[in-house]
């Protein structure tokens, strides 16, 4: 665990592209998200077993390798799906904008918010309320001791890595109707993920949740109120947090 994984943006993009392919055959977004999630999870598993596992706790090595792998994924996608942006259709039932309290919201975006909350809640319950979650946390806490009480730490971590990859892959498909699949999607997404994690704190689910909230709100309102600061606004909360609380809002380790 504690892997510095910079392929996350690429896994997101890979998921989006796989979703494109699935939907050409079976035009159902949710099915595509499921399929892409599984496929990307398998890919993540290979990545973890064949490459990251070999690097042990070598953080710098992991950063460089995952960065390299992300380039490889990006170009493989370019070769496979070409350089043009490919739209992912919005599910027909969610195509209409809805009006709430005088404001217009695209229905699909609301659906995405709901999905995000459900996934976050499910993750929280998994981690905090199940024996499996406790085993994962024990493994993060003291991997040697965890294995000495019979927890198959390495298999568990591979599974967690796959789960992370699966969420990234499925996320790519679910984000598809808003973002589309296009070369560079990875580079657009990765910074957001990193900012959220640094802001919320490494190793904290609650931190990631709060970090994502802050990032989303600051960005949206910041861009609206101070359009000239569009570039910085995203990084401002992160810089403040790093300056005053280097381990992030809820972090357990220094970022």
């Amino acid at each position: 665990m504690r892997i510095a994984n910079l392929t996350h943006g690429s896994l997101f993009m890979l998921g989006a592209y796989l979703g494109v392919t699935v939907m050409r055959q079976w035009p159902n977004l949710w099915l595509a998200a499921l399929a892409a999630g599984i496929a990307v999870a398998l890919f993540g598993g290979l990545l973890e077993r064949l490459i990251l596992r070999q690097l042990g706790g070598n953080v710098l090595g992991q950063v460089l390798v995952t960065l390299g792998v992300s380039f490889i994924i990006a170009d493989a996608c370019l070769i496979t799906w070409g350089g043009d942006p490919i739209p992912i259709p919005t599910p027909p039932a969610l195509q209409m904008p809805v009006r709430i309290a005088g404001f217009i919201f695209p229905a699909y975006r609301l659906a995405v918010v709901v999905i995000a909350v459900v996934v976050a809640l499910a993750l929280y319950l998994l981690m905090e309320r199940t024996r499996l979650g406790a085993m994962i946390r024990a493994g993060v806490d003291d991997p040697d001791m965890a294995s000495a009480v019979g927890i198959p730490v390495s298999r568990l971590f591979s599974t967690v890595f796959c789960l992370g990859a699966a969420l990234a892959g499925a996320g790519g498909v679910i984000g598809g109707p808003i973002m589309s699949a296009y070369p560079g999607l990875d580079a657009d997404m990765l910074p957001l993920a990193l900012i959220v994690v640094i802001l919320g704190g490494v190793g904290s689910l609650l931190g990631a949740f709060v970090g994502a909230f802050i990032t989303g709100f600051v960005y949206t309102f910041g861009v609206a109120l101070l359009p000239d600061l569009a570039y910085v606004i995203l990084f401002l909360p992160m810089i403040l947090v790093i300056a005053f609380r280097p381990r992030g809002l809820f972090g357990k380790f220094a970022a």
Partner: peptide, 29 residues
């Protein structure tokens, strides 16, 4: 908007509703 902005939602919400038309000067995707 920045070249790599992933989502135009914010910009769309602020569009001046009393304009006749929008001119799009975008490149790429």
């Amino acid at each position: 908007p920045p070249l790599t902005v992933p989502d135009y939602g914010t910009y769309l919400a602020q569009l001046n509703p009393k304009a006749d038309a929008i001119y799009l000067g975008f490149a790429g995707s």
